[in-house]
């Protein structure tokens, strides 16, 4: 696992319901790296994440996740792979009829053969990691959007996945909490070696935590650039990616 790339995209095309919206996505990601997907809103970042994870099938090209080629994999194989990764959705997607604690417990109850008490302790630990120790018995409708995001991250971490996808984890969070979240992401990577793919608009946060960055160019309908985020600060880099990074940096 250490030598093999955890995510491989070769000429990947992604889209919604048969309509291609982004093509020519090429990159490889080694385990334990943090990848940020950036681009103007509506350019297909979330769609790309869904295809990378195997939640949606790619519309063309090759996509490999955790060593599984998605184009030729069976539904059962994909299901098995999905189980090995965590996913935070843009709208958090917490189960609205369960408390936060039960939300985090659900995957553990389904897949871990551990006593109830132990699962409960684990769930409480994961919720404490994201700073929700005193909101564990609240229902998703009773908490703020930022808290829901954090609970979603706790659920994504429930089974200690090798790979976590985070769709705009820090959107709607105050700067302090968002800073804590960056630390949490770095800590996850450093202690568990978790690979993390995230969609984000927060340039300072991307510069701080991401090792690599995919820039999607909606005008061309293809991947614009791929590389370490600091490279895009230099004037000679991909023009639109540079504009994105420097514009956000000024503001």
């Amino acid at each position: 696992m250490t030598t093999q790339d955890i995510l491989v995209s070769e000429g990947l095309a992604v889209g919604h319901g048969g309509n291609v919206i982004m093509t020519s996505i090429d990159f490889r990601l080694a385990p334990g790296r943090i990848l940020a997907i950036v681009g103007p809103s509506g350019c297909g970042k979330s769609t790309l994440m869904r295809s990378l994870s195997g939640l949606d099938l790619p519309l063309g090209g090759r996509s490999e996740v955790l060593g599984l080629d998605l184009a030729v994999a069976t539904a059962t194989e994909r299901e098995g792979t999905l189980r090995r990764l965590g996913f935070l959705f843009q709208g958090s997607a917490l189960f609205s009829s369960l408390t936060l604690r039960e939300n985090v417990e659900l995957p553990m109850r389904e897949f871990l053969r551990a006593p109830r008490r132990e699962i409960r302790a684990l769930a409480e630990y994961k919720l404490a990691l994201v700073g929700l120790a005193d909101a564990m018995d609240k229902m998703p409708a009773e908490i703020s959007g930022g808290m829901a995001k954090r609970a979603g991250i706790a659920r994504a971490m429930a089974l200690d996945p090798d790979l976590i996808f985070l769709d705009e984890p820090s959107a709607g969070l105050d700067p302090l909490t968002s800073g804590r979240l960056d630390e949490l992401i770095l800590k996850l990577r450093d202690t568990f070696g978790t690979t993390i793919v995230l969609v984000s608009h927060e340039v300072p946060s991307i510069l701080r935590i991401a090792d690599f960055c995919v820039y999607l160019d909606p005008d061309a309908g293809r991947m614009g650039a791929y590389g370490p985020p600091r490279d895009f600060l230099a004037a000679g880099s991909h023009a639109k990616a540079h504009a994105f990074f420097s514009q956000a940096r000024i503001s």
Binding site: L82, G91, A93, E110, R155
Partner: peptide, 17 residues
């Protein structure tokens, strides 16, 4: 309404049909 809030997707991602 579970489709609306992506709860169905969240189940699929957990490998639950």
């Amino acid at each position: 309404s579970m489709n609306v809030s992506q709860e169905t997707d969240a189940l699929r991602v957990l490998g639950i049909n």
